[in-house]
Design a protein around this nucleic acid. Structure first.
Lengths: 244, 244
DNA sequence: TCAAAAGTGTTGCGGCTACACCCATGC
DNA sequence: GCATGGGTGTAGCCGCAACACTTTTGA
């Protein structure tokens, strides 16, 4: 039997990209019986859990993700820890935690992960579906506890990592257009890129390979599809380069 | 009264640079009474502590550092967490922990920090002095628990950070020569730099300012001293650039 | 035929690399 | 005067930024 460890939790900032915008998967906190039912139940939080006592931290985060998205092999990165002794001090949120958790609530240090999922391949757990929402990363409302702060830091970490590691592809479908790729970099890094220069640069990268296939179902000239060739990337990678 | 939290610790990888080599500050683990006194007592570990219950994580790490180096304002960065449920499973090390800690030993998740100190300004606590050692970063012996793994990851984090953040200066004295700076980058990143090109590049950086002063006490042409001008750096910093 | 996005080349500038010798100092 | 590291300039190449129009498709 595995006991929950009441001192340590994991929280996951799950990022998704719909081709134009960066989104974060959030969960509606259950409403407490004594809370005013007129208040809309839109109090959101990050997915997360107390860890179990026999479980490695990464495993615990994977568990959260699998249960939520139905996906296996997901990109997952531990990026920070939040352990301020007062981080749970908000009377409403704390009350909720007391009611839903079956353990006495003590100081909880949370290990924060961010995760990158292919939004169109994810397949949320039925029972949770009605309570999960993809929210645009720059329109996150006030969340419980310090979860806003966790997302802010996750975004910083994501931006930093995106410059030097090939993680953008984790957010794109296996076959993607250069426009999607460019949008992704623009929206995450927050600066416009020159389309011609972007394509020139990408054209020189041997790990971005054009497929003998075009997109379809669009009412304009269909774009060439590309894939990211991981093997080639890691074989030819130079030490400190930017990915794109 | 502040209790120790027996579930969460901080460990610090303290880096120092002596002008030529990167070093790590380690502590000799106390010998147990029943251990063979003929075995040299050179079992080393990272400085670290269980956190106290009312203390923020960063505070806790600062406390460890202050006690150890006598320095205040030190560069400190939380870079990872180690929480494998079996990470403390080495019978000798575990026995030591049982004896020295006054608490029942349970699973401990450790928050790992690395820290950068000006080695010549540090002034270790007298009572600890005899038990601390600066060890070259590429000659670390087998340490207790998973501390080797923690150092490996700290080195990775340091290398990554050094490329994009101006943290090298935390390891140098306030006034330093370009040779010291170049050595620092070479030894940490592990590649030789062309001296002329290095100086040309540095010459263009307005946040590296030459002082009206030269080094002295050397038996060769004394080198110009420089300082790092933080304000200028952050005022003129571009988004994603490399520092040097 | 129109709307919408795909796709395409050139030029100038600045930064990067490669490379070898004289200089100032302490002993 | 010798040993030791300090300090300097040039040339070729490559990557980066700036910039506007034609093409292909679905409706």
């Amino acid at each position: 039997m595995t006991r929950l460890n009441p001192h340590i939790s994991v929280d996951c900032v799950i990022f998704g990209f719909d081709g134009a915008n960066l989104k974060v998967l959030l969960i509606e906190r259950e409403k407490l019986p004594e809370e005013n039912p007129d208040i809309p139940s839109d109090i959101l939080k990050l997915p997360g859990n107390l860890i179990s006592d026999t479980e490695d931290l990464d495993e615990s985060a994977y568990r959260v993700l699998r249960e939520l998205t139905g996906l296996d092999k997901i990109f997952l990165k531990q990026f920070s820890v939040f352990g301020n002794p007062n981080r749970l001090d908000n009377s409403n949120d704390l009350e909720w935690l007391r009611v839903t958790s079956e353990l006495p609530v003590e100081r909880v240090v949370t290990i924060a992960y961010y995760s990158l999922v292919k939004i169109n391949e994810s397949n949320p757990n039925e029972s949770l579906l009605s309570r999960t929402k993809w929210i645009e990363a720059n329109e996150i409302p006030k969340l419980i506890f310090d979860h806003n702060q966790i997302i802010d830091k996750a975004l910083d970490a994501l931006r930093k990592e995106l410059r030097t590691e090939p993680i953008g592809f984790e957010l794109l479908p296996k076959k993607f257009t250069l426009r999607q790729l460019q949008n992704l970099y623009e929206v995450i890094l927050g600066n416009k890129l020159d389309n011609r220069n972007f394509r020139k640069k990408v054209g020189k990268l041997d790990y971005l390979v054009a497929l003998p296939e075009k997109e379809n179902g669009v009412n304009h000239k269909p774009a060439q599809l590309y894939k990211f060739d991981k093997k080639t990337f890691y074989k030819t990678r130079k030490d400190a380069g930017f990915v794109i």
